[in-house]
């Protein structure tokens, strides 16, 4: 007998018809038809169980706000009161967000990022050719009080240099400084260097800097006050991803 007709297979899968004896005989000897019938049976079984999934309630807005706050810590501060970013307040919120069980999950995620970074390094050592090897990159977005046209891109290259391109930064009487911040503890940061008024600079990342931890790139406006710590006036931020 010939292979089962597609319409026949569907009828059998939906249990709308019984198998004829010649069909049963063919199915017993034909793996292809048997496989098609099994697949269609399973699909119809699954399909019959989908009724309560067709109109799921929309996911809550507060959950989206939590996601948004994590992917762009800089854009998270509600109200947008001032250009001043309160680092301590950020830290408090970051800590509250994390629950006890999260730690191992985050550790696993960090391990995954490390694994990716490791692959990139390995590829480079293995002599893969190509242009510049980018270990990590970030897109810098303006904070709320900074003109929306401001922005930038950051690339961490395999040789440990960080290429920073910025545009549209507000004028300053001081200077623009680049930082790598730990988004889980916003008081922890590494000063990378200043932009010296250039739209495109290459800055060395200190050897040994953990980019999985210090992954939040921050460009701040620093006054000439002799204080080497962050002024609290962040202009652009973005998170490094490998």
């Amino acid at each position: 007998m010939q292979h089962l007709d597609p319409d026949r297979l569907v009828l059998l899968a939906l249990s709308e018809d019984q198998q004829h004896s010649d069909e049963s005989e063919h199915l017993a000897g034909c793996a292809g038809c048997r496989y098609d019938l099994e697949s269609l049976r399973e699909v119809s079984e699954i399909g019959a169980q989908t009724q309560d999934l067709r109109d799921l309630p929309p996911p809550p807005e507060h959950l989206w706000r939590a996601i948004e706050a994590e992917i762009a810590p800089a854009a998270a501060s509600p109200g947008g009161s001032a250009a001043v970013t309160d680092l301590a307040a950020h830290r408090g919120r970051a800590h509250r967000r994390r629950s006890r069980w999260l730690a191992p999950v985050l550790a696993a995620a960090a391990a995954a990022v490390l694994a990716v970074a490791g692959t990139v390094v390995f590829d480079r050592l293995a002599g893969r050719t190509g242009g510049e090897q980018v270990l990590a990159r970030a897109t810098l977005a303006p904070l709320e009080t900074v003109p929306a046209a401001a922005g930038g891109d950051v690339r961490v290259l395999a040789d440990g240099q960080m290429r920073v391109d910025v545009r549209g930064l507000p004028l300053t009487t001081g200077f623009h400084e680049v930082w790598l911040i730990d988004p889980d503890d916003l008081t922890k940061m590494v000063a990378i260097g200043n932009l010296s008024g250039q739209p495109d600079v290459v800055l060395p990342v200190p050897v040994g800097t953990d980019l999985n931890r210090y992954r939040l790139v921050d460009v701040s406006d620093e006054p000439h006050d002799g204080d080497a710590t962050h002024s609290g006036r962040s202009l652009l931020r973005g998170t490094l991803t490998s």
């Binding site: 996911p59 939590a66 995954a112 991803t241």
Partner: peptide, 12 residues
């Protein structure tokens, strides 16, 4: 769900 979408963003 939050972890999933944050991971999706990081691993986009």
């Amino acid at each position: 769900t939050q972890l999933t979408f944050v991971a999706a963003w990081t691993g986009r």
